[in-house]
Design a binder for these strands. Structure first.
Lengths: 235, 235
DNA sequence: GGCGAGACTCAGCAAACTCACAGCCTCGGG
DNA sequence: CCCGAGGCTGTGAGTTTGCTGAGTCTCGCC
């Protein structure tokens, strides 16, 4: 939603054996302007990489034939140098992934929010020089958010945000002046399997306001019956 | 109504097993300049998509054979990439819809107002680049309404409207210079199952006038015995 | 194992909104 | 000019919606 697709779309290969996950990720990435292929096994993944030469892999570590690390190893062995984002469960396999962020790679633990995944993808593409966008900074009025450094400042004064607060603010800043519905915010900022009380959103808006909007002109506005928006006070 | 149909009409497929709902939606959309097909079951829907290649689906989640999500899944499986607006009841199924705003998709909970539905359709077509209109702004004389930002201004001065006032004004602005009957206004702006006193309409016209039409040339005009219209004073 | 931070739930309060109603006003026909 | 139907608007009740402080639970860290 944020941006129009560039003249040349970036090709991404999504590898996961759960069709639901593949669907959700594919939809979101297509919508973000990526060209998406998918595969369900390690073997398919390697074949698809050879055939389509994607510029980035989103790769589940848990695959029916051999695991994601093995896929990465084989690609490296074949001198295919493509950045990878690993999807991992929040369990023991998480440890194995730790060393991976050393290369161009990164990982995201399931369940994740789509915002999270897209942000990682953008970061990696930027680092790899593939993306069109050079900056990792979002700016609205005197509010700044650095996606890479995970830093936020208002009027130059740094602000500490928790992970959820950060994601929420980032999504708002990606869509300034547009009213985002509760559904959109919940879908993008919370994990894809979040099934809880929708009122969390209000709680976090409240938190954000207390940290970000205490001073001067408030930027976070409620649009009753619709949702929230980031904008300068009017008139 | 709003605008002359583009050289090529946008094709919409409406899927619902309640003939009443299909009729109401179809009529409204045809009136808005869409080319409308309909189907009553999931199987029919898939066949119709294959045969007619609609550019958008309005899809009830509750269908006699298999549900709307399944239809979506099968279409995705067949690599048919068509945006979908799901119709859902305000109950447990509402939860399942969670995640749908991720892709190009969206949902509307029953009972909805036709204005609501049409607004969502326009937004999605705009986002998907299918619509002829790139802008989310409606303009009539010095009155402006931004659908994305949910902002209204008269002569540059911002105006605060409630949700209902906003829908009513939007419907008027979508049909400038045309006289809209009370029935049309009630049907489009209020939920289709609204059973209350038709005099609400007058109340809201009154509200709107106080907010929008206080200054200079009044734009909202009563056509006695018929309805209301948005136009410049004649003479 | 205890502690603290963060994520989420919950409930009560406050404000805003929707709608009904009723009396007044206006328009247009006779 | 008078009258009636149709339209307008102030008042207020009932409901919805949103905000916030307090509490629970989990998890990582010491």
């Amino acid at each position: 939603m944020s941006s129009a697709p560039p003249s040349e779309q970036v090709r991404v290969l999504v590898v996961d054996d759960e069709p639901n996950i593949v669907d959700v990720i594919s939809m979101a990435l297509r919508f973000e302007g990526f060209e998406v292929e998918s595969a369900g096994t390690g073997a398919d993944a390697i074949a698809a990489v050879a055939a389509r030469r994607p510029q980035l892999l989103v790769l589940d570590v848990m695959l029916p034939d051999f695991d994601g690390f093995e896929v990465a190893r084989r690609l490296a062995g074949a001198h295919v140098d493509v950045p990878i984002i690993f999807l991992t469960a929040r369990d023991s396999t998480e440890d194995k992934v730790h060393g991976l962020t050393l290369g161009g790679d990164d990982y995201v633990t399931k369940p994740f929010s789509l915002e999270e995944l897209v942000a990682r993808i953008r970061t990696i593409l930027r680092r790899a020089g593939i993306s069109e966008e050079a900056s990792s900074k979002l700016v609205f009025a005197d509010l700044e958010l650095d996606e890479d450094a995970h830093e936020v400042a208002r009027g130059g004064r740094p602000i500490d945000l928790t992970a959820t607060e950060f994601r929420l603010l980032r999504y708002l800043m990606l869509n300034p002046r547009r009213v985002l519905t509760r559904a959109q915010l919940l879908d993008h900022v919370w994990n894809y399997d979040f099934g809880g009380d929708a009122r969390v959103l209000e709680t976090y808006i409240s938190y954000l306001r207390k940290k970000v909007d205490l001073e001067e002109p408030p930027l976070i506005h409620t649009v009753r019956g619709v949702g929230y928006t980031l904008r300068l006070p009017r008139g």
